[in-house]
Write a protein that binds this DNA or RNA. Structure first.
Length: 576
RNA sequence: CGGGGCGUAGCGUAGUGGCUAGCGCGCCUGGUUUGGGACCAGGAGACCGGAGGUUCGAAUCCUCUCGCCCCGACCA
């Protein structure tokens, strides 16, 4: 039993000035967390109980699935991370430090290397596999911009697991087991979520799915089809194009279009000067980029932007991708900024990538590769040839579902879990092999699975809070029942404590507000802010032998008789 | 890293060159209250983020610096 008179807690009446999102404001106001530095928070008793509840649920579901818990240090030497190149590849997001002898260390951002090496150190036979191990660990990433309180911190608690299998079928099974365990876990956490494809699968069929908790303040955007249930990260969304037949257009016509470097101005000039009656979607946008030192051109319909994140995700071989800058344009005089067209790409030695909407045989209004001139009837297959199709255009609400052709909606969400088939990347670079039946070494294939534990606190708060405060699902809440004693006599207070102890004996967790000083109103406000789902008020009803039970979830209150209080409260808790 | 904003008591804030830096919440003491963030009286708590400068005089002006928030870029 927690007692408010003893609890290390101070609630705040005003929103903290540095908080923007609801979870952040409420967790601070209700005394769950306090900020220490940007993206770094301390947990006070109520918050820490809540965090540990989530940890416990995750742990129970992992254990039930047969996965085993281990624990690595957060402070790690650089050597394993050098072996996989991540010491350099991870870049400035890695927290690095040195010991007194000048040795390089890091604060672990994720632990693939350590898990791989641990297995390598212990196991060497196919008979030892499959194996899945996990840990719950504090992770560190020096994010360029931590934000939204606890949603994106630089220090955060994460559960990460890794599966080890001898072959692809085994990996698939381990992956599916994890997926099931995650479904059970998030259901218990009381989160609404979508399971969303995260990668196009173009790369060796490596499956990857994200568990996204929809909410307005989420920082991930994803696509959802309300008709068939298809859900995908925008990067993984594939464009659905209804095939069209095109008549053969006349030969290319070059037109004078002075001062029309933008699509908008082009459409204006075409319609006013040439009576073309077109929209931006009839024009072709040619975006020049440098992809690992090679110039490439990406073609999208003129009414769409190129989504660089999507493009990057769909160009797996490319490490660095950036837009042409003025210097690039000045180095290649044949490419006229604002008047680029695909028809001379071969001659210019530029690879053409195109959005699937640039269909075979389609024709477009586009740049003429001369200043102040555009060309029309520029036809795919005749005047230019696409080298590769790529998902590069921004995804919009109303685009067609790739599975059932229904217009999709776009939603925002917080990523709370991610499962994916890592394959042999780490096993290879760290040389994790086991002997197979024939005594031959085979490289182990791995899966990697994460749940943001501290982030889940915020995600739940975002999804469940209301105007007056937090509102926790029962298993997550810092207690099952919040008992408020009111009045100036001793009786409600002794009674409240009595009920508290009886409920504890019956297996419920309770928080009793036994403070004598604050008025009833203050205690009600605090109870609502703190968000324990069942609030019991012991006060003026006592003379009639009744107390009041409030349910934050159904937003109802009932008077119940003192004599049956324990069973009735238990029933309400159970009903949640 | 680019753009914008902000640092004044534990929290929220007022104060744009001139008295002892003001108010609300919270905190302490005493009293009245006790079912919706009560009231009265008294009190503690701030080197105004830091350094340097201008000035008779700086929270206030200038320079530098540190920190924080938001948008963007970035994010296994």
């Amino acid at each position: 039993m927690l007692r408010m008179s003893q609890l290390f807690l101070r609630t705040l009446r005003d929103d903290p000035a540095d908080a923007e999102v609801a979870s952040h404001k409420l967790l601070v106001r209700a005394g769950y967390i306090r900020r220490i530095a940007a993206g770094i928070y301390s947990w006070l008793p109520l918050g820490y109980i809540t965090l540990r509840n989530i940890e416990r649920i995750v742990r129970e579901e992992m254990d039930r699935a047969g996965f085993q818990e281990v624990h690595f240090p957060a402070l790690l030497p650089k050597e394993p991370y050098e072996a996989t190149n991540r010491w350099s590849e991870y870049g400035p997001d890695l927290f690095r430090l040195q010991d007194r002898r000048g040795g390089d260390y890091l604060l672990g951002p994720t632990h693939e290397e350590m898990f791989t090496l641990m297995v390598k150190g212990e196991y060497s036979s196919y008979k030892d596999l499959p194996l899945t191990i996990y840990q719950i660990q504090t992770k560190y990433r020096d994010e360029t911009r931590p934000r939204s309180g606890i949603i994106r911190g630089r220090e955060f608690v994460m559960k990460d697991s890794y599966s080890f299998d001898i072959d692809d079928a085994g990996l698939q099974k381990s992956y599916d087991d994890h997926r099931d365990a995650y479904i059970k876990t998030f259901n218990r956490l009381g989160l609404k979520y979508s399971i969303v494809s995260a990668m196009s699968g173009a790369m060796g069929g490596s499956a990857s799915e994200e568990f996204l908790a929809p909410c307005d303040t989420g920082e991930d955007t994803y696509v959802l089809c309300n008709s068939c249930g298809f859900a995908a990260n925008v990067e993984a969304m594939s464009t659905k194009v209804l095939p069209q037949k095109f008549d053969t257009p006349p030969a290319i016509e070059v037109l004078d279009t002075p001062n029309t470097p933008t699509i908008e101005s082009l459409v204006e000039v075409m319609n006013s000067k040439y009576q073309a009656n077109i929209t931006a979607a009839d024009t072709l946008k040619n975006i020049l980029l440098i992809a690992d030192d090679q110039a490439i051109c990406v073609l999208v319909p003129g009414d769409r932007e190129v989504d660089l994140k999507r493009l990057q995700a769909n160009l797996p071989g490319i490490q660095e991708l950036r837009l042409f800058d003025d210097e690039d344009f000045s180095k290649r005089k044949e490419l006229v900024k604002g008047y680029v067209g695909p028809q001379d790409a071969k001659r210019f030695g530029i690879t053409l990538y195109a959005d699937p909407r640039i269909q075979a045989g389609s024709h477009w209004i586009t740049g003429a590769n001369q200043a102040n001139k555009h060309a029309r009837f520029v036809t795919e297959g005749r005047d230019f040839t696409i080298d590769h199709y790529v998902e590069a255009a921004e995804v919009r609400a109303g685009d067609l579902c790739p599975r059932c052709d229904t217009p999709v909606v776009i939603d925002r969400a917080i990523e709370i879990g991610h499962i994916f088939q890592l394959g042999r990347k780490y096993a290879q670079s760290l040389d994790l092999t086991v002997l197979d039946k024939d005594g031959k070494p085979v490289v182990v294939t791995m899966g990697s699975y994460g749940i943001g534990i501290s982030r889940a606190v915020a995600a739940i708060a975002e999804q469940t809070h209301d105007e007056i405060g937090l509102k926790w699902p029962r298993e997550v809440a810092p207690a099952d029942v919040h008992i408020v004693a009111t009045g100036k006599d001793d009786e409600p207070f002794t009674k409240a404590l009595e009920i508290g102890s009886e409920l504890e004996r019956a297996g419920l967790r309770t928080l009793v507000d036994d403070r004598r000083d604050p008025s009833a109103g203050v205690k009600f406000k605090d109870a609502e802010l703190i968000g324990i789902p069942v609030i019991v008020v012991v006060g003026k009803g006592l003379v009639n032998g009744v107390i009041e039970v409030r349910n934050r979830w159904t937003n109802t209150k009932n008077e119940i008789s003192l004599s049956s209080a324990i069973t009735e409260i238990q029933a309400v808790v159970k009903s949640l």
